[in-house]
Simulated scan of single mutants.
Amino acid sequence: MSIKQLKMKAIDIRCELLQMIHRAKAGHTGGSLSNTDVLTALYYRVMKLDPQNPKWDERDRFIASKGHAVESLWCILADKGFFPKEELSTFSQFGTRLIGHPNNKVPGIEMNTGALGHGLSISVGMALAAKRDHKGYRVFCLMGDGEQAEGSVWEAAMAGAHYKLDNLTAIIDRNKLQISGSTEDVMGLEPLEEKWAAFGWQVVSINGNEMAEVVAALEAAPTVKGKPTLIMANTTKGKGISFAENVAHWHHHVPSDEELALALAELAASKQALLSEKED
């Protein structure tokens, strides 16, 4: 997909996830909206995948360590054909496969995640296995910024650099908000880029809601041979919905009927504006 097509797809995914959360009366809205652009770039342009053969040995692997923000991922997997789109209507309902965190009973999900701090360790193991088995696939791991307070993240960071895993790309959805407020108030993280660099990673900082920057960073990885890449995706929580942006309350706020209508109208206007732009 072109950059313009990816931007339009990201708007569609945001519309879908908002409707899904509203219907289910449950979900993590703000973080799913902030990570949508990264996931759209990964699944529609960057990663090698085959929805008809989800266990294809040469596929790239994706681990959503930020497992609670799964809504955007469910919508993308359904749109890509990993499972029927109609199943989205069962999200968070009794007996569904589409629970509030990644569930590996669903095609396209590599690993159950949700307990923060575990995804990068899993990703390091997968990347190391690829190296030792002489496989060409890459591993991508999306983390939250609140998750950076977990000690296991830094153990995995140390291991990734030690084993020179240049087939591993970690992305931090740096929206600076977590469930109880600002990350810097809850547990100060800065200087976060310098910390990752000190652990031996090549660090790339981008606007994680600007599709051209997201694609360029993901396609350029690995940026240094023999080093894993950390993409600091500076994002906006609640991205795309003016009244939800940078509002901690929207971490798992379920939009009301009125809020949903307003949000969908804003997204429709954004898509209309995009249609009038020249192709990138």
Rank of each mutant, 00 (worst) to 15 (best):
Q178L: 06
V254F: 04
S121K: 07
H249W: 09
C15R: 15
N53C: 04
A265M: 03
L177A: 07
P54Q: 08
S256V: 00
G125W: 11
T90G: 01
E147A: 04
S65A: 04
G108H: 10
M47Q: 06
A69C: 02
G117P: 08
D50L: 08
H68N: 10
V204P: 12
N207S: 12
G117M: 05
A170Y: 00
G200Y: 06
L128T: 07
V214Q: 03
F243H: 08
K131M: 06
T236H: 05
I122F: 12
N209Y: 02
L165N: 02
P102N: 08
Y44K: 07
E213Y: 05
P84T: 10
A129V: 01
E259Y: 04
T183G: 06
T235C: 00
D173P: 02
Y44F: 13
L262Q: 15
V70R: 08
G31F: 04
I63F: 04
K237H: 08
I13M: 01
R97Y: 12
R132N: 00
A221V: 12
M8E: 15
M111P: 09
M20N: 15
A197T: 14
H252Y: 07
V215R: 05
Y163L: 01
T90L: 00
S182W: 11
T236P: 07
F82M: 03
D133L: 01
S121H: 06
L274C: 14
K85H: 12
S34F: 00
S92H: 15
S123F: 02
D37W: 04
A170T: 03
L18Y: 10
E184G: 07
W250V: 04
G181S: 14
W154Q: 07
L142R: 07
N104I: 06
D145L: 00
G136Q: 05
L128C: 09
A197C: 10
M111S: 13
G151K: 04
E266T: 10
L189D: 08
L6S: 15
I76Q: 12
Q93E: 15
V106F: 01
S205A: 13
V38A: 02
A156Y: 01
V70I: 10
M187L: 15
A24M: 11
Q93S: 13
G31S: 11
K9N: 10
K7M: 14
T36C: 13
F199P: 09
E279F: 11
A161T: 07
A41F: 06
L77N: 14
L17M: 15
A64L: 12
E259I: 10
I122C: 10
E245F: 00
K9W: 12
G181C: 09
H22Q: 11
E219V: 03
H28E: 14
L33I: 02
R174N: 13
R138T: 03
K48N: 15
D185T: 06
R132K: 06
S182L: 12
K25F: 11
L49S: 09
A198T: 15
E58G: 14
L264Y: 13
P107G: 01
